[in-house]
Design a protein around this nucleic acid. Structure first.
Lengths: 203, 203
DNA sequence: CAATAATTAGAACCAGGTACTAATATGTAG
DNA sequence: CTACATATTAGTACCTGGTTCTAATTATTG
């Protein structure tokens, strides 16, 4: 093995570090910093699975684009296909390009949450319904193109004002991908005062 | 002037729009969409001051890099203003028209959740970080125009892979409006398999 | 010493351009 | 109708930052 010019694994580690803290470095510059030929640099990149400069920039650019695309989700998430007020409800939400991380195709958590939350709120038959708290589990990741079917069940109610417990399960086919317990605050709408929060029913 | 092949200013406007909604388009593709020669496309880009594809990608990549400097400025909802990996982070998110119920001006829960969730994920210094579960409370409702300041603290970590507990508090001014405990699954990225979920870290 | 691993060299090729020159429409004003 | 101006297209040379492939040259080690 090499002894003078720094052992290979060590050099590769350095290469990794250099690129990590400056992704815009060219192979040309790397030869200067690591004192090896450009071919060696390229072999190293290959072995380490590091793409070329342009590909690295492209990936970063895509990531920054994702940020912009993720914001404009205002309306109620998912399509409600069944609703029995104060009892249960079902909604469908298909994962599209704008809902996933472009690199992995995995859906962003807040979209899955949003569908469930929207449904939990919709199922409550009050002028105003806001999520007070929630306890949620992402059972498995959801991929681009998958159809999420959320089912909500009202587990308990306390009077015309007060709180309601709603349980939501989200499925892709037979598989459960998400589960959550929502505590929904219900009000007639006279005042949306303190000690409570998020979300009302219908727009 | 041209009459058949669509007047120049109109074509340039279209070009601008196409690039705006898909910055990754090549001149080659633009010729197909606008039905003019590649030279015309390039003259148009010149006149409009639109740089070439690679330059556009580079700029996007740079922007995403120096927003928080260092890579981990992910798919964060809200603007990250401080980030100490594996320790803590702060982000700001202003509630605008598109985030509220039009009738009441109350912010929809999933936006508040999204900010907190994004930050909880961003603060974890791993290739992939996904929300496994969360326990959240909406303390009080947030109104249109209010600035939400989310603060995340890593409470515990278990090795390089495994789970991390992150606590997030969101404030409007002095008031706490949201609080959540997130269990984040961390992985090196070899496989984003089962039994886990949402959200990854860096690209 | 021969076999193996690591490194270097070099040439061909590629995408997605820039820069520049020149020819060819297409109008429009006089 | 002609002259001139503006638009559009064509074509070539060149650039960066690579990939791919073949081959030669150094170690290194068993």
């Amino acid at each position: 093995m090499v002894i003078e010019r720094l052992p290979k694994p060590l050099r590769q580690q350095q290469l990794l570090k250099i690129i990590e803290e400056n992704p815009f470095v060219t192979d040309q510059e790397l030869t200067r910093q690591l004192k090896v030929s450009i071919q060696t640099i390229r072999l190293d990149r290959m072995e380490l699975g590091i793409p070329e400069l342009r590909e690295r920039m492209k990936q970063m650019a895509e990531r920054s684009l994702d940020q912009v695309r993720s914001l404009p989700l205002d309306e109620v998430i998912g399509e409600v296909i069944d609703l029995q007020l104060d009892k249960s409800g079902i909604s469908i939400f298909e994962i599209r390009e704008e809902h996933v991380f472009s690199r992995t195709g995995i859906a962003r958590g807040h979209h899955i949450f949003a569908q469930a939350n929207s449904l939990a709120v919709a199922v409550i038959n009050n002028e105003i319904a806001l999520t007070a708290s929630a306890d949620i589990r992402f059972v498995r990741s959801v991929q681009l193109g998958e159809k999420c079917i959320a089912k909500a069940y009202v587990r308990s109610m306390s009077g015309k004002k007060g709180k309601a417990k709603v349980e939501v399960f989200t499925y892709v086919g037979e598989e459960m991908v998400f589960q959550g317990n929502f505590l929904i605050y219900r009000s007639t709408g006279e005042e949306y005062s303190e000690g409570v929060s998020q979300h009302e029913n219908r727009d």
